[in-house]
């Protein structure tokens, strides 16, 4: 069930990328899809009634959350930020050249 909610979030992002025409909306769609993938990573590693993966001086290690997907998601978030900034730089350049954010109008204006 919780996987299905995560999948719905991903599909919202895909719908926004495919259907919308504004470039800023397309960037927002990619960000939402990336959120869904990060969430899926963390959900895969969750253990019921587990502790977070930080040791403390006087407690035994048992029933701890899987920390490997968390490390991968941590890397993924920073790469997503770099990706977003490159996309925004490209969008600003496109606006400077064509004076619009609309994808279909940019296609007509070529040449």
């Amino acid at each position: 069930m919780i996987y299905l909610l995560c999948l719905i979030l991903f599909c919202l992002g895909i719908y926004c990328i495919v259907r919308k025409r504004n470039i800023i909306k397309i960037i927002i769609g990619t960000i939402i899809a990336q959120y869904a993938v990060n969430l899926f990573f963390i959900i895969l590693g969750y253990r019921r009634e587990g502790r977070s993966a930080i040791l403390s001086p006087n407690a035994r290690i048992e029933n701890m959350v899987d920390m490997l997907p968390q490390a991968l998601a941590l890397t993924s978030i920073i790469i997503g930020l770099a990706f977003t900034s490159i996309l925004i730089a490209l969008a600003l350049r496109i606006y400077e050249k064509y004076k619009t954010f609309d994808v279909t109008k940019i296609k007509e204006l070529q040449g």
């Binding site: 920073i78 600003l92 400077e96």
Partner: peptide, 20 residues
């Protein structure tokens, strides 16, 4: 590295606006 890199990106975005 991360702090200086992100600040450089932000400066580049702001300077482009003012030039335009």
């Amino acid at each position: 590295k991360v702090g200086a890199g992100l600040f450089a990106i932000f400066i580049a975005l702001i300077l482009l606006r003012i030039n335009r």
